[in-house]
Amino acid sequence: MKILLVEDEIEMKDSILQYLEMEKYLVEYASDFNLAMQKIHLYEYDCILIDIMIPHGTGLDLIQEIKKIRPKTGIIIISAKNSLDDKIDGLNLGADDYLPKPFYLPELNARIKALMRRNNYEGTSSIVFNEIEIIPEERKVLIHNTLVNLTTKEYDLLEYFLVNKDRVIQKNALVEHLWGDNADQFDNFDFIYNHVKNLRKKLLELQCNDYIKSIYGIGYSFKTIL
């Protein structure tokens, strides 16, 4: 899968590039408006990550151009300019998602995967890993082809783990993924522990392997190699 990253901060670019390459994406990079324009005219991408504030132009103009020439490309805005106007403008122009900086890299990965699924990339809409199958459209989970009854939060957790396999995911990242801005005012993350505990219990009951490992109390990892 081919991704274009439009980002002017070199360090930020390096981090995103490194993380996405671990996920086996093919990532190209443009550091300003003009370079980004060249790239989108020359090549076709499955997903473009755009920072709003870039040299020689704005990400919003870029979105307009992409929508004109390649309307099917998925667009995710990654912006530090956390202003509602920009968010609304961006989404109105046809961006698919908006992720304000700072964000967790697994979150970015999850957004990209979700977008690709919605755009029906690779022709399949379900996520399959060994005995686990997730059907995101129906928010259903099957273990050994048996339906598991998960709560909303447990489902979100499992999906997040599955798209970020073998990564160390911090509890903070899980909280942000599950509650978004609402978690802002709370810092008691014990309930994450409870949710993960319940999820594991439900999976184990159906003879699912115990993939979810706790990492020294700071987070979790979905281990594919047991």
Binding site: E9, E11, M12, S15, I16, Q18, Y19, M22, M53, A80, K81, N82, P100, K101, P102, F103, Y104, L105, P106, R167, V168, Q170, A173, G219
Partner: peptide
């Protein structure tokens, strides 16, 4: 100002994520 603050924060955050991997 918000942009300028958020960017370095985002960079630090991403580096931590990478380090953790």
């Amino acid at each position: 100002a918000s942009h300028e603050f958020q960017t370095p924060l985002a960079i630090i955050k991403s580096k931590i994520d990478l380090l953790m991997q």
